[in-house]
Computed example of a mutant assay.
Amino acid sequence: MQRNKIRSSKKILVLGPVKAGKSSISNYLGEAVDVESLGEYRATKGVRIVEFESHEVDIDGSRVEIDVELWDCSGDLKYRDCWPAIKEGVHGVILVANPDENEGTDLDIWYTNFIAKSSVQIENVLVVLNEMGEKRTNDGVISEFKLPVPLSSAVCVACNLRHEGENLKMEFNQFLMYIIERDRARADSF
C-alpha cells in the first residue's frame, strides 16, 4: 500500500534568558553539534537560524517530512527591536531556562512578547528546563521550578544534553507532530 507523503515547513523560535543554553539545544536538535563539544558559552548576537530536515514522522498513515527552522534568539534584551520581525510566520516556541540559574518568572517577558501577543497557542509551546554541566538532571531543582501561570499548561521537559539528549529529541519530534496535527485540523475546519 502506497502511503501519502507530505512535506511541511515549520518555524520554531527558541527563546529564554541569557546563558540558558538555547544555542546548545538548537545545535543539538539540528544535529549541528555532538554532545562532547558542548560547553563553552558564546553569546548569540540577535538571532541565528539552524535549518534541518526532521526525521520522517508518521501522522495518520501519512509520511511527513518537516523542514525545520529553529530561530535561536539572543536572550539579551538589547535586541528587542528585532522581535516584531522574528515573530513573523512562527509555528511554535521553545522556551529554555536553566533551573539552576533561572526562575519561572524569567520566562514572563518571552511569554508576553512572543506568545500572548501573537497567534501562537499554548499547545505550540515547549518549555525546556536545561540543566548544564556534568551532573544528571536534578529532580529537586526541577520540582522547585514554578512556571508562570499562563505557561502552566505548556509541555515542560527537563534535560541535560550530556546525559539525556535523546529524550529531548523524542520530545521535540512529538512537539513537531502536535504542531502539524493542529495545523491540519485547523485547515480541515475551513
Rank of each mutant, 00 (worst) to 15 (best):
Tyr28Pro: 05
Leu168Met: 06
Ala20Pro: 10
Asp139Cys: 11
Glu31Trp: 09
Ser153Asp: 00
Trp83Gln: 14
Gly89Val: 13
Cys156Leu: 01
Val47Met: 10
Ile179Trp: 10
Leu161Met: 08
Ser118Ala: 00
Tyr111Val: 02
Ala154His: 02
Glu131Arg: 03
Arg63Ile: 05
Thr112Glu: 13
Asn27Ile: 08
Ile142Phe: 14
Ile66Ser: 15
Asn113Arg: 13
Tyr111Gly: 02
Val57Phe: 05
Glu144His: 13
Phe175Met: 09
Glu88Tyr: 13
Asn138Trp: 08
Gly92Phe: 09
Glu101Val: 00
Lys19Asp: 13
Met177Val: 14
Asp58Met: 15
Lys11Ser: 13
Lys117Val: 12
Pro17Gly: 10
Phe114Met: 01
Arg186Lys: 14
Lys5Pro: 12
Val18Asp: 01
Pro99Gly: 08
Glu131Ser: 02
Leu168His: 11
Ser24Glu: 10
Gln2Glu: 07
Lys135Met: 00
Gly46Asp: 03
Val149Met: 10
Ile12Glu: 01
Lys135Leu: 09
Lys117Cys: 14
Ile59Tyr: 02
Gly92Trp: 12
Glu56Lys: 15
Phe114Cys: 04
Glu134His: 04
Leu126Ala: 06
Lys169Thr: 12
Cys73Phe: 10
Pro148Asn: 04
Asn160Gln: 01
Val120Trp: 00
His91Tyr: 04
Tyr111Asp: 01
Gly165Val: 12
Arg7Ser: 13
Ile122Arg: 07
Asn27Gly: 11
Val128Ala: 00
His163Ile: 02
Lys169Gly: 11
Ser152Trp: 05
Val93Ile: 10
Leu176Arg: 03
Leu70Ile: 15
Arg136Gln: 03
Glu53Cys: 11
Ser118Asp: 03
Glu53Met: 08
Phe172Gln: 04
Gly104Tyr: 06
Tyr178Trp: 09
Leu151His: 04
Asp106Met: 15
Phe52Asn: 00
Ala97His: 11
Ile12Asn: 07
Asn130Trp: 03
Val120Lys: 01
Ser153Glu: 02
Ser74Leu: 06
Ser143Glu: 08
Ser119Leu: 13
Arg42Pro: 04
Gly89His: 05
Glu134Trp: 00
Gln174Glu: 06
Arg3Asp: 05
Val90Leu: 06
Val33Ala: 09
Ala85Gln: 07
Asp188Arg: 14
Met177Asn: 03
Asn4Ser: 07
Glu164Asp: 04
Pro150Phe: 03
Asp81Pro: 06
Glu123Ser: 14
Val127Tyr: 02
Arg182Phe: 00
Val18Tyr: 04
Pro17Leu: 01
His55Ala: 08
Ser23Ile: 06
Pro148Glu: 02
